[in-house]
């Protein structure tokens, strides 16, 4: 399960299957706040999320391409910024909390 904190302050809990990305979980459940224009190939920077600081350390490290793209996200990069298309769900990530940024484009 992933807990998405939406821009209006509400929270949505979604069962995202292992192997699917956190981006896909949001898009296929029609959660507002993630655009994912490129569909998840780390090309557009519109699936940006802020990972809850308490959970950030559970994620695998940011790879070079994602790091480069994060430098250009619309809402401004913070210490726990990630692209949700690059976070693949595993049982170990159950309960992950992510917050939608102010804007994606």
């Amino acid at each position: 399960m992933v807990i998405y904190q939406l821009k209006d302050g509400s929270e949505r809990r979604v069962d995202v299957p292992a192997g699917h990305s956190v981006m896909l979980g949001a898009v296929q459940n029609d959660l507002p706040g993630i655009d994912a224009e490129c569909g998840g190939c780390c090309a557009c920077g519109t699936c940006h999320v802020y990972v809850d600081p308490a959970h950030y350390g559970r994620l695998p490290a940011v790879e070079a391409m994602e790091d480069d793209l994060l430098s250009g996200v619309a809402a401004g990069r913070q210490a726990t910024s990630r692209l949700s298309c690059q976070i693949t769900m595993t049982p170990a990530l159950d309960g992950l909390v992510v917050r939608m940024p102010e804007r994606q484009g």
């Binding site: 990305s21 898009v27 459940n29 029609d30 569909g39």
Partner: peptide, 30 residues
Amino acid sequence: YQRPPLSKGFLAGKIERDALALKGEAFYRD
């Protein structure tokens, strides 16, 4: 569904079919 992966990740077997849908059924209903 997403078309770009048809010649890339989906062809190479890195992405599965249920990950291709652009929107879930809930979107059309809602």
